[in-house]
């Protein structure tokens, strides 16, 4: 009797299947871990390049973060203050988001809830095309088309400035916000829509009473990916913002961003020099900023969830 029971309990699947499953699991685990390893390795590499100056005695962290004087190649008076660059990055990104978030989310809502099937397919293709344009082309548009427009319609002396960079970045992040936002809205089950409409809600009431609360995490993720794109973008802002290191007084002032600065100067800084290391440190600063943005967002999302 006991023997029979044991025979019944024994797994009937062949050994190779069990082994195969184990191996597959291992491979997947490896993939997951390797993602973390790569991020850590990149961080470590950047840190290693920056470390000598960070811990050297000629360097003042406070000056690095808060001074607006950036004279990396000056012979007599070398200064590495990145505050103006940070302000440049933040201002261009902020302007881009002010433009891109309403447009992007609005478009996502329209595409997902209000337009017909034909229209939706067309719009999605156009949006996809928009996101496939390389950033150097965007920079080119900023440099030639946008800047002429700005000079023609505003009092700005030059056309490459915060406004130009902000608009270009907005155009670049809108496609991301739209496609991720639309996915988030599409993921809301249709039964919610039916239930809401069956209670006599109009389509707008449905959108802001049911769909936005239900999709808020996904929509926030869409916005954040847009922000990430804008903060990290280099080529387009390098070409469109004017490359002037100073604190801007309005959106028609030229600025330089952290990313553009690294791209423009790293090639000319001798490997191992102070300048070279400070640029890597700037990279770390950039990393810190994006990390802070993501962390805030994560906390916001959790806060919303708990509510």
């Amino acid at each position: 009797m006991k023997k029979r029971l044991e025979a019944m309990n024994r797994p009937s699947r062949p050994r190779w299947a069990v082994l195969g499953e184990k191996m597959l699991e291992g491979v997947i685990r490896l993939c997951g871990i390797s993602a973390i390893v790569f991020v850590a390795a990149i961080l470590l590499f950047v840190f290693r390049e920056a470390a000598p100056i960070l811990f050297g005695d000629r360097f003042h962290l406070k000056q690095f973060l808060l001074s607006v004087e950036w004279y990396p190649t000056s012979v007599s008076n070398v200064r590495y203050g990145t505050f103006a660059l940070t302000v440049g990055s933040v201002s261009v990104t902020a302007l881009a988001m002010v433009i891109a978030v309403p447009f992007g989310l609005g478009a996502a809502i329209f595409v997902s809830e209000f337009c017909g099937r034909r229209m939706r397919e067309t719009l999605k293709i156009v949006i996809e095309l928009l996101s496939a344009i390389p950033s150097v082309v965007w920079g080119f548009i900023g440099l030639t088309v946008m800047s002429k427009l700005i000079v023609a319609y505003t009092a700005a002396p030059v056309g490459v400035n915060i406004l130009n960079g902000g608009v270009i970045l907005a155009l670049m992040s809108v496609p991301i916000i739209v496609s991720i936002g639309e996915d988030a809205l599409k993921a809301v089950p249709d039964s919610y829509r039916e239930a809401g409409l069956a209670l006599g809600a109009t389509r707008w009431q449905l959108v802001y009473r049911v769909l936005l609360p239900a999709a808020k995490n996904g929509l926030l993720a869409a916005v954040l990916l847009g922000v990430g794109r804008a903060v990290g973008e280099t080529m387009a802002v390098l070409m469109a913002t004017g490359h002037a290191v100073h604190i801007p007084h309005g959106i028609l002032d030229s600025v330089r961003t952290l990313t553009a600065n690294i791209a423009a100067e790293l090639g000319e800084a001798p490997v191992g020099s102070d300048h070279y290391r400070v640029l890597f440190l700037t990279g770390l600063l950039l990393f810190g900023i994006t990390f802070a943005v993501n962390l805030t967002a994560e906390l916001v999302v959790r806060g919303i969830r708990r509510k």
Partner: peptide, 8 residues
């Protein structure tokens, strides 16, 4: 027949 609680 199957309850649809809105996510509210």
């Amino acid at each position: 027949p199957l309850p649809v609680g809105l996510p509210l």
